[in-house]
């Protein structure tokens, strides 16, 4: 199989394009989904897209090893965010009986 050069050898741009697609899919999930958990999953997708870009720049760009460490810190923060956000979702569910974000417009019962 003969491919043009820009297709045959994946480089920085290829990884960045995958990252961009992931980012827009995550954005779509955050905007269209009305379940709190689903919105969270969209945010995780966006964070992962950012991570992929950081690591790709670390590999091909002039970022040396810093990109890897940024990626590690992003993963740490994502873990903390997921734990707190799910605790909030649980508290909201216990109080309001739903996790539909459009019905959560009240500040109290």
């Amino acid at each position: 199989m003969v491919l043009p050069d820009w297709l045959a050898e994946p480089g920085l741009n290829h990884f960045l394009v995958v990252g961009a697609l992931l980012f827009s899919l995550g954005l779509l999930a955050v905007m269209t989904r009305r379940n709190l958990i689903m919105v969270l999953m969209g945010i995780e997708l966006i964070l992962n897209a950012a991570n992929l870009n950081l690591v790709a720049f670390s590999r091909y760009g002039a970022l040396a090893l810093d990109g890897h460490l940024f990626a590690l810190f992003v993963i740490i923060i994502a873990a903390a965010e997921a734990a707190v956000a799910l605790a909030i979702a649980l508290a909201i569910y216990n109080r309001f009986g739903t996790v539909d974000v459009e019905q959560l417009s009240d500040l109290r019962e």
């Binding site: 990884f15 690591v55 670390s58 990109g67 990626a71 590690l72 993963i75 873990a79």
Partner: peptide, 14 residues
């Protein structure tokens, strides 16, 4: 992308 440690962390944490 040569980021073996990030890959393992990704699997473990995510």
């Amino acid at each position: 992308l040569f980021a073996g440690f990030v890959a393992v962390t990704q699997l473990l944490v995510y």
